[in-house]
Design a protein around this nucleic acid. Structure first.
Lengths: 253, 253
DNA sequence: CGACAAGTTGACGCACGTCAAGGCCGGTGG
DNA sequence: CCACCGGCCTTGACGTGCGTCAACTTGTCG
C-alpha cells in the first residue's frame, strides 16, 4: 500500500511521554492511565517521503495513524482521472478512522512533505472503547471536527467564486498550521503546488494560476520555494468572507 | 429555536421497543441492556412541520435527535444569503451530534417534509460513553459514515459537470431512501424543490432547471406533485459515473 | 378571484475551461 | 562544463458552460 517510498522506523523518535504535540495548549491533557494506554496502543512510527501514498482507496488497512510532523492530504479519484482533494492533514490529525470502522478505505492519503506518523492497530480500537471512554469520546470528537471542516469546504466549493475559494483555502490551511505551532515566525511555506489547489477548489489549473496571481498582485500571498507563503491572512479571510475556525481546546490521540 | 412551527408530543407514538426502524435488516440488532439504556436516554418525540427549522447555526442545543420519519437537510448560509445544502437527513440519521460535542451549531437543519424525531439529552452522552461502549462505538460509526457521504458530495460538486451532479444527487437520495424502506413500490416522490437541488449542487436555479429538464427528456426522472420521482436509477448512476454506496449493516441509536 | 410559490424558457454576458506555447529551475548524465 | 529533461509556473487566444435578467405559465390556496 505504501510501496517502496515508505519505511518503518523501529526506534521511536517520540515516545508518548515525550510527545511533541501534547504540550501545545490547544490539546487537552491526558490522564495518566490514558497516557499509559495510548503508549501501549501505539505500535511504532512510520516515516513517509514527500509524494508517497499513505493509504489507498479500495484497500483495507490494519492501522490508523496520527500525524506527528509534516503535511498530507486526503483525496478521491474518478475513473477517468478527475481528482478531488477533500481535506489537508496536519499534525494532530487522525488518518484512516473511516477505514478502521467501516472496512474498506473510501479515499486515499498522500504526503505533501516528509511525514512522521504514529501507528496504531485497528484491532485495539475495541479495547479503547471498552476501557477508555474518555478516549472514545475524543475520537468521536475528532471525527466530528473533520465533518465540520468538510462542511466548510463544501460551502466554499459550492458557493464561493474562484478568488474567494482560493483565499479561503489558503487561509484555512495557514490557520490550522498556526494552531499547531507550525509557522512560529510567520514564514511557513505551505508545501503545495497549484495543481493541488486546483484539485481542491474544483477549478482548472490554468484558471487557478490566474486566480493565485491576483492574490499575489494584492500582496496577500507569495509563491516561493515551490510553495505558498501567507503575507496577510486577515486580508485573505476578509476576501473570502470567512470568519475562521472556532478553535477550542481539542483532543489528541 | 424551532419556533412556532414545531410541537412537542407528550405521548410516544413509538416506544423504543416498537421502533419502526430497528427491524429493518440494514440496522444492527440491540443487546437488551442497550435497548433499556436508549429507552431511558430518549426523552420524547418531536414532530416538526415541513419547512420548519429544527436546529439553527450559531445556537446551542440541549438535544440531539434521530430521524424516525420524514426527510430534512443540513445547510450553511453566508452573510450575503448564499446557501449551501450539505447533506440530506433520512430515517435513522442522527441530528446535532456536532453541536452536542463541540458546543455551538455550525450548520442549520430544516425539514423537507413533516418529520418525527426521537429526542435525546446531550447531557447523557457522557453516561452513554461511560457505560455503553457498544453504543459509543456506534455513534462514532455514524459520524464516520456522515464524513464519507460528505467526501462523495465534495467530489461531486468539485469534479462533476452539472448534469452528472444532478444525476448523482438524485440517485444518492433515492438509494438512501430505498435502503431505509421508503419507496417500497418504486413510487417515492422525493419532496424537494429545484431550488434545493440548485443549492446542493452549487448551481443557479435557472441552470438547474435546464439540467433537470435534460434528465426528464432522457426519461431518467419525472417531476410530480412538487417533487422528484426516479424512473431509472441505474441510468442516473451510469450518467454520474457513480458506483453507489457501500451499504453495510449499520448502527442505529 | 388575486396572490404566491414553483417551474419554464429565451436572450445575453461573463467566469471559467481548453489549447497551445514558452519560461524558469534543479537534477542528471555525457 | 554544457545539454538535456521533467516538473512547475505563466500567459494569451479562444470557446463554452453556466449565471443573470426577465417574462411567462401552472397549480394551489384562501
Amino acid at each position: 500500500m505504501s510501496g517502496q517510498s515508505t519505511k518503518q522506523n523501529e526506534t521511536r523518535r517520540y515516545p508518548c511521554e515525550k510527545c511533541p504535540l501534547r504540550p501545545l495548549k490547544i490539546f487537552r491533557a491526558f490522564e495518566p492511565q490514558e497516557l499509559a494506554f495510548v503508549s501501549k496502543f501505539k505500535r511504532g512510527e512510520l516515516s513517509v517521503d514527500k509524494g508517497a501514498t499513505v493509504l489507498l482507496e479500495g484497500t483495507h488497512s490494519a492501522h490508523l495513524y496520527t500525524v506527528l510532523t509534516g503535511l498530507g492530504f486526503r483525496y478521491k479519484l474518478m475513473h477517468d482521472g478527475r481528482r478531488q482533494i477533500l481535506n489537508y492533514l496536519l499534525p494532530g490529525d487522525l488518518i484512516g478512522l473511516q477505514g478502521s470502522l467501516m472496512g474498506e478505505m473510501q479515499h486515499s492519503v498522500e504526503a505533501l512533505s516528509p511525514m512522521l506518523l504514529c501507528v496504531f492497530e485497528r484491532d485495539q480500537l475495541g479495547e479503547l472503547y471498552r476501557n477508555h471512554h474518555g478516549l472514545a469520546y475524543d475520537i468521536t470528537w475528532i471525527a466530528s471536527r473533520e465533518e465540520q471542516m468538510l462542511d466548510e469546504n463544501l460551502l466554499s466549493i459550492g458557493r464561493r467564486t474562484a478568488i474567494e475559494r482560493a483565499a479561503y483555502l489558503i487561509a484555512f490551511v495557514a490557520l490550522r498550521a498556526e494552531s499547531v505551532g507550525l509557522d512560529p515566525e510567520g514564514k511557513l511555506v505551505i508545501p503545495i503546488t497549484q495543481q493541488h489547489i486546483a484539485d481542491t477548489l474544483g477549478l482548472s489549473l490554468v484558471h487557478t494560476n490566474k486566480t493565485i496571481r491576483k492574490l499575489m498582485d494584492r500582496k496577500l500571498i507569495m509563491w516561493r520555494d515551490g510553495g505558498c507563503v501567507v503575507i496577510n491572512r486577515p486580508g485573505l479571510m476578509a476576501l473570502a468572507r470567512w470568519e475562521g475556525l472556532k478553535e477550542v481546546r481539542r483532543p489528541l490521540v
